[in-house]
């Protein structure tokens, strides 16, 4: 997952003012990309999308992903309103006899022909104080 938005903090702002869209996008990314428990001082911070990894790719899992994203943004970035959250499942079929990923152990690689790998494409339509925000995330499951 890549994002190019720069991190900016509200701490340096001399006066209380609303966060800019850019800042809000950065915070949403931070929430969605942080598995809960990764920050020991605030273990509940984050979005538990990592729990979907390894689960069967069903419609229910897709629904669950949508709920997790919406609730995490609602809790941690309340300034942002989730207008739409589309989660799509993209299947990455394994070509039998293809070259093996060097990072995978042989035993696991031998199982790949019998399964499928998928990616969740989440398209969020968000609305901040300054107008709409669009964010694309790709999370492997």
């Amino acid at each position: 997952m890549r994002y190019s938005s720069s991190l900016s903090t509200a701490l340096s702002r001399p006066l209380r003012r609303p966060a800019t869209n850019e800042e809000l996008v950065a915070r949403v990314r931070l929430v969605l990309e942080t598995p809960p428990g990764h920050m020991p001082w605030l273990p509940e911070l984050g979005c538990a999308l990592d729990r979907l990894a390894g689960e069967p790719m069903t419609e229910a899992a897709v629904e669950r992903a949508s709920e997790l994203v919406t609730s995490a943004i609602g809790r941690w970035v309340p300034e942002v309103q989730v207008v739409r959250c589309d989660v799509r499942l993209r299947m990455d079929h394994v070509v039998p006899g293809g070259s093996r990923d060097q990072n995978l152990p042989i035993a696991e690689a031998s199982l790949l022909p019998f399964s499928a790998q998928g990616t969740l494409d989440i398209e969020l339509e968000l609305r901040g104080p300054d107008g709409p925000l669009v964010l694309d995330l790709n999370l492997p499951t």
Binding site: A10, L11, P14, L15, R16, W76
Partner: peptide, 24 residues
């Protein structure tokens, strides 16, 4: 340092996260 500034920042504010991590 910042009279009237945001002294109760949002926990997802990157700057505040760094401070919290440092404190931890």
């Amino acid at each position: 340092r910042l009279p009237g500034g945001n002294v109760e920042p949002d926990p997802t504010d990157p700057g505040w996260l760094i401070l919290e991590e440092s404190a931890w």
